[in-house]
Design a protein around this nucleic acid. Structure first.
Lengths: 207, 207
DNA sequence: ACAGAGGACTATACAGTGTTCAGATACTGA
DNA sequence: TCAGTATCTGAACACTGTATAGTCCTCTGT
């Protein structure tokens, strides 16, 4: 007897219908919610299905496998990031201020959308080699940065773009891993403060 | 019938002994090997045990649970990193050259010891809140950087240390996630070249 | 030299996982 | 109205982490 999923009386679906209607969407949302609340370690396809009130096999009609679900979330994450970066650019005309603003937006996104961000950079989960659309969505985000850096006359704009990405990404990754909290605690400050000071430093170094 | 582990004729252990003798060590090594060859996704305690030629329950006499094994590897990784960073400092007297050398060593370590590095920064796997020794080992590594940065008279040495860490960490993380390969392919270069150019840029910016 | 204590290991079991497949159900267009 | 198709369920498989009880070996004290 398998009682893995929530007490779901057969043929008495919450929405009153056998067909869910918008299961794909609900699975994506349930998964992100789960990551955000219980962490990436708690994500299982069965758990996500249970959360959405369907059987463990139901997701397979919308996603080839677990990795496909996670890759879809990854794509969505990159799209949201791209939007955020574009928004951070609005009104800023000097490339230097724009770049700093991008870095800030990148880190902010990572911390506000932890669930998405972690998935976006864990290839063992979303298997980007099998789901190239995630890669493509990432390219779009990087392009926003590359375009601004191009205006920033540097002897090596490609390396500069990669460096800026690395800086922001490193800050974000360390923050999400709790490394900055820990470092902050030892220094009598916190992760927020540390990232803010680091980005201020970036500003001064670009000048 | 459970045939999960390798065909191991009962009481005919490879080493000729019932007691393995150095199982703890062998489990750690087998695990790292597994990550390096098949990726983090392929790591399961049972698989590691099988690789070491013991039953699935054997690891529990050396590690409280799966996370404890991974945390132990994490500790070892941080120790190796600390060593590498110290070695990178040898002979370099000017703090600026030293810092650049540290960044290079950090990225090199990440790429050469992929298995270790990934584990070190995936808290959902090694659960650092339960294994504070991993945190402590990380502190030691960071201290190497912080010490050098202190000589680099900056208006905000703490933020500078965090920034340099973030830069190197971002570069390493992006490289391991395959992002730099992908970016490199689009730019007609490769990940090695990109990281080298990025670090050269860091050098020029510190000047 | 030998008992027996305790550590290292195995066998077995349980719940949970990803995934597959046959069948049930509901929506769709002719 | 009715066949066809998309969606979903139930049951099954091999695998996972982990707990328990028991077996084997090595060591220590006498």
């Amino acid at each position: 007897m398998d009682v893995n999923y929530a007490p779901l009386v057969p043929h008495t679906r919450p929405r009153g219908s056998y067909h869910h209607g918008a299961l794909r969407e609900e699975l994506l949302n349930a998964c992100v919610r789960l990551i955000e609340v219980e962490g990436i370690g708690a994500v299982s396809l069965r758990r996500v299905a249970r959360e959405a009130g369907v059987s463990p096999a139901a997701p397979y009609h919308h996603f080839a496998d677990r990795a496909a679900l996670l890759a879809a979330i990854s794509v969505r994450g990159f799209e949201q990031l791209t939007e955020r970066l574009r928004a951070a650019l609005a009104g800023r005309e000097q490339p230097r201020a724009a770049v700093v603003s991008l870095a800030r937006a990148y880190v902010t996104f990572a911390r506000e959308r932890k669930g998405y961000f972690q998935l976006m950079f864990r290839p063992e989960l979303s298997q980007p080699e099998k789901h190239p659309d995630a890669r493509a969505a990432g390219d779009a985000a990087f392009a926003v940065l590359a375009d601004v850096v191009a205006e920033l006359d540097s002897p090596d704009p490609e390396a500069l773009a990669v460096s800026l990405w690395a800086f922001a990404h490193g800050l974000a990754a360390l923050a999400l891993d709790g490394q900055l909290d820990h470092r902050g605690a030892e220094l009598g400050t916190d992760a927020d403060m540390l990232t803010a000071r680091a980005i201020r430093l970036l500003d001064s170094m670009l000048g």
